[in-house]
Amino acid sequence: MHIPDGIISTTAAIGGYAAAGGMTWLSLYKIKQKYGNPRNGIPRAALLTAAFFAASLIHIPIPPVSVHLVFSGLLGVVLGWFAFPAVLVGLLLQAVMFQHGGLTTLGVNACLMGLPALMAHRLFCLRSLFGRRKPLPNAILAFLAAFSAVAAGAIMAALLLIYATPAYFDAAAEKTAVLTLSFAHLPVALLEGTFTAMVVLFLLRVQPTLLEADQK
């Protein structure tokens, strides 16, 4: 869900930038703590960001519409603390190259996708409780991580659209709208969860180091 320019209030847009700035600062701090010299992590994060960017251009037809995967969960799983800067960079690239999303709403959009990604990362880290290389816990946690990332993103976006746009809904209509928007994302969240679980199972067999963003 990318919110374009001109739709939400300036207060919300600036608040989004402030929150995104704070999250970026926190991420950079954590990255420095982990890598020592954070430049070591850049080529990997950049290539994976580019890969996600390329993959998110693929559309899957779910009649009657076609959706593209958000990848917020998978991004968090693979990139760890690099996920937030990666989301920010990916969104800026989309805004620059396709005018997808917006410039004033960049901060808001980064939070809508980046916060769920970090949450997905934390959730996926729980696999250390069940055995890091066991397929089943990996698949289940990957599904949950991606499913909840999409769900959280959709709910946050719905709330934002209701409360930060110049619209006048009554309380009942607001509740209906939030529920509708969230439920409309249910198939997408299921799809994203299933897809992410499949990719994680693939990575577990082929290159398990890609899933170790939680490890040094």
Binding site: R39, I42, A45, A46, L47, T49, A50, F53, V89
Partner: peptide, 18 residues
């Protein structure tokens, strides 16, 4: 921060190839 700008530049560099 350079970490962001480096990330941006390198991602951009590889998007076309990927």
């Amino acid at each position: 921060p350079w970490l962001l700008t480096d990330l941006l530049l390198f991602s951009y560099r590889y998007i076309f190839q990927l």
